[in-house]
Nucleic acid binder design. Structure first.
Length: 773
DNA sequence: ACGTATGCGATTTTT
DNA sequence: TCGCATACGT
């Protein structure tokens, strides 16, 4: 880490450019509005800052930090500033740095909840029976560990899935429930063995000298609760505490904050109850209410002036969120001119939705709007496919935000397992993961024997392996390859002391045969896996040493996304929180999709309100224009279903929305039909469909691709599948596909091509998705 | 040890 | 419906 001592930090600060020093006492205060300024200047005592969407929250927050340092209320190292994501922490670091000129490097306690806790836990690990070198397990490791335990305990994994237990663990840890303290009525797992399994799991982690994500918080809370001296030390250290996205905190995080801030009581929590969308992850909006109870003298400041969106968008969003019962209440306002109403558009189905949005994007682009100024925000990732297909078809550059992450890929995790095993040979989970990958003839049987010995003597698998080399319990074949493996690990361990860690990684990947394994693999993904391994070595190069790198990847699961190029963004509503775009598309506003059926089923009114907040988040991402779509038909689990427009559409204030549909699509123009947004495909007479040019067009366009939605049966002549026109391509021809790259056509069937792609292997793709090279 | 059969489930996701 | 994960057979 780039810790700087306090002295260094201040030196850097004093040596900041003269231009900044010359600007007067607090130049940064001048461009704040009154409540923002209050948020910055109310430094003493508890502060609850309710910051609506787009109200300059980050600005207030970073300025507050800068002000604390600038006025010398606190040394940078006396400020605790926590965020939820690495991205937010990074942004805060940069912005504070911009304000005070680099001294922020000396803010050692600005980071995510988890990174701050790792830091504390490494210092006091022994207080919870860990060594300070503990490793951090990610979800995947955690599941594998639980599987093992369930197996050993003789529990049927079909009736009691490991994932289910993992989520129970999660819920307990979010609430700071430690192993001995599980309420009896929550022990239902495996016929009442839930609490017992928690204890076993916890014990297993301790012997592995490992923690899971939840433990990072829970252990620190435990330490602070049971060691008054340690607690006092941190309480005195942190003169000021600042929390971002406070509405997302869970109970454990709340307890942690309350403990740490108890001495100076200078705690500032920033949040927005209307943007609380992570309840399913343990976040408790109630923490906002509890704050006012725990700190009755808290100053409550509201940021309500919005600098992002037009009045029309704000009005629509405000009208919607006003339907929620449980909220503190805020009224966003703006001085911007009115702007276009929020557009609502009904379409035939998801393909038509994608087609229209694609067309809209192209039209906007033609008018000079940058692609990077547009975003499509979906409720769930399965909705993305239609858009990706459409964008590829149109040749529209797009970027998916979120999605599968680099460090979670199989090959990367395998490489990490090798590295971790070399760093700490007793890392059983890593041993197990890669001891037979690539295949070395160490099958289930050999591993079972190792496990038996290891468990019997309470030693690690690696140590057990060494013992087995001296006995004849293993078959000669297995023993030979085990010897080879153990010797290789020893060799790498030795080498680790002499050579740079990147070279070590290359050496391991090479000598273990891991790279070779993927080179010999002819599956489509093998190529990209090899690429990823190269990228991994490159990423390692950015770190001082192996330990630093491994620690980083365990907490920062993402690689900085390539933000180059002008592209449309495609992401879930959750991923969109905190972002803004001039033009925002909101597809799939249908009952069951949004609000999601499952949320409503599982959490009732509360779930519905969270969905509504999600809709609010979506709308408030838009700066100039928001367009909501809903489809009359949607394929759910392969079946066509009629869809009803989302209740959220009804809840939008009529004077700020504009219902647009293809001419004649729904008969009369929207303005003549009060309550039109409630129209529902099932109520429209069939005749309307057949006689309606709009529908016919939509239908003809989609006829090529898939089975017809309901209500169209009996009109087969319009639904001829893949017209047998001669293909524009020939077998053997080289083509290009946006998603799969270059390839050669091996067969043609109607409008589908079988292609051998150079990178992605054999695939069947639609002719319309490829282009000649 | 590797391939096929079969069944199940299917939101949101950070660390 | 489709993709996956586990289970069984060669």
């Amino acid at each position: 880490m780039n810790d700087m001592s306090e002295e260094d930090a201040f030196e850097a600060y004093e040596q900041r450019p003269l231009s900044q020093q010359a600007m007067g006492v607090s130049p940064y205060l001048s461009d704040l509005n009154p409540p923002q300024r209050e948020a910055v200047e109310t430094l003493d005592g508890p502060v609850l800052l309710l910051a609506g969407a787009g109200t300059g929250k980050t600005k207030a927050l970073t300025t507050r930090l800068a002000h604390l340092i600038h006025t010398r209320r606190a040394w940078p190292s006396q400020i605790l500033a926590v965020t939820f994501t690495n991205k937010a922490a990074r942004e805060m670091k940069n912005r504070v740095g911009g304000l005070i000129g680099g001294a922020v490097e000396g803010m050692p306690w600005l980071g995510t909840f988890h990174s701050v806790c790792v830091k504390i836990l490494r210092r006091h690990a022994e207080l919870v029976e860990l060594k300070s070198s503990f490793t951090i397990l990610d979800t995947d490791d955690q599941i594998r560990l639980i599987k093992q335990i369930i197996d050993v305990e003789g529990i049927d994994p079909k009736r009691w899935p490991p994932r289910m237990f993992a989520s129970m663990l999660d819920r307990w840890k979010n609430r700071a429930v430690s192993p001995g303290k599980v309420p009896p009525d929550e022990c239902g797992f495996a016929n009442g063995r839930g609490g017992e399994l928690y204890r076993i799991y916890h014990e297993r982690l301790r012997t592995l000298n490992a923690v899971d994500f939840g433990d990072l918080l829970l252990h620190v809370v435990t330490i602070l609760q049971t060691h008054p001296d340690v607690l006092a030390d941190y309480q005195q250290r942190f003169k000021y505490v600042l929390v971002d996205e406070y509405q997302d905190t869970n109970v454990a995080q709340y307890l942690l904050l309350r403990l740490l801030a108890a001495e100076h009581r200078n705690i500032c929590c920033v949040g927005d109850d209307d943007q609380s969308i992570y309840g399913w992850r343990g976040a408790e909006v109630e923490n906002i209410l509890r704050f006012e109870k725990d700190f009755p003298d808290a100053t409550v400041i509201r940021l309500e002036r919005n600098y992002r969106s037009t009045p029309a968008i704000l009005a629509a969003a405000s009208g919607l969120i006003a339907e929620n019962k449980s909220r503190l209440g805020k009224t966003l306002w703006t001085e911007e001119p009115d702007g276009d109403p929020v557009q609502i558009r009904g379409v035939w189905d998801a393909d038509e939705e994608a087609r229209q949005i694609g067309d809209d994007i192209e039209a906007a682009q033609a008018k000079g709007v940058k692609l990077s100024d547009m975003a499509v925000l979906v409720r769930a990732s399965f909705q993305m496919r239609a858009f990706e297909e459409r964008f590829i078809h149109l040749g529209l550059p797009y970027r998916v935000i979120g999605g599968p992450r680099f460090f979670e890929r199989e090959e990367i995790r395998d490489a990490h397992a090798y590295l971790r095993l070399v760093k700490s040979q007793d890392d059983d989970l890593s041993f197990e993961r890669i001891c037979n990958k690539p295949r070395r003839g160490l099958g289930d049987k050999a591993l079972q024997t190792l496990h038996l010995t290891a468990r019997g003597q309470s030693i690690s698998l690696m140590r057990a392996a060494r013992l087995m080399l001296e006995t004849d319990e293993l078959r000669p074949q297995a023993r030979k390859s085990l010897r080879g493996f153990v010797e290789a690990v020893d060799r790498w361990t030795l080498a680790a002391a002499d050579i740079p860690h990147t070279e070590l990684a290359e050496m391991i990947l090479d000598e273990s045969g891991y790279t070779e394994m993927w080179k010999n693999d002819k599956s489509p993904q093998a190529g990209s896996k090899l690429d990823n391994l190269k990228e991994l070595v490159q990423a390692m190069g950015e770190f001082e040493n192996l330990a630093g790198y491994l620690d980083h990847v365990s907490l920062v699961m993402e690689l900085d996304q390539d933000s180059s190029g002008d592209r449309v963004s495609l992401m879930t509503l959750h991923a969109a929180k905190g972002l803004e775009f001039p033009l925002v598309f909101l597809p799939g506003w249908e009952e069951g999709i949004f609000p999601s059926q499952r949320s409503v089923d599982e959490k009732g009114q509360e779930g519905l309100e969270e969905e509504r907040r999600l809709a609010y988040v979506g709308l408030t991402r838009a700066m100039e224009s928001a367009r909501i779509f809903f489809a009359a038909n949607r394929q759910v689990y392969g079946r066509w279903q009629n869809a009803i427009p989302s209740r959220f559409i009804d809840e939008l204030p009529k004077q700020h929305i504009d219902i647009v549909s293809e001419p004649g699509l729904y008969g009369a123009p929207a303005s003549n039909m009060p309550g039109l947004s409630r129209f529902d495909a099932t109520r429209v007479e069939e005749d309307t469909y057949y006689d309606n040019p709009g529908w016919r067009r939509a239908r003809a366009a989609k006829a090529r691709k898939s089975a017809p939605p309901p209500l169209l049966e009996g009109k087969a002549e319009l639904m001829t599948t893949s017209a047998p026109d001669a293909s524009a391509y020939a077998v053997g021809e080289r083509i290009f596909h946006q998603k799969f790259g270059y390839g050669r056509i091996s067969a043609i069937e109607g409008n589908k091509l079988a292609v051998d792609f150079e990178k992605a292997g054999a695939k069947r793709v639609l002719e319309s998705f490829v282009e000649k090279t």
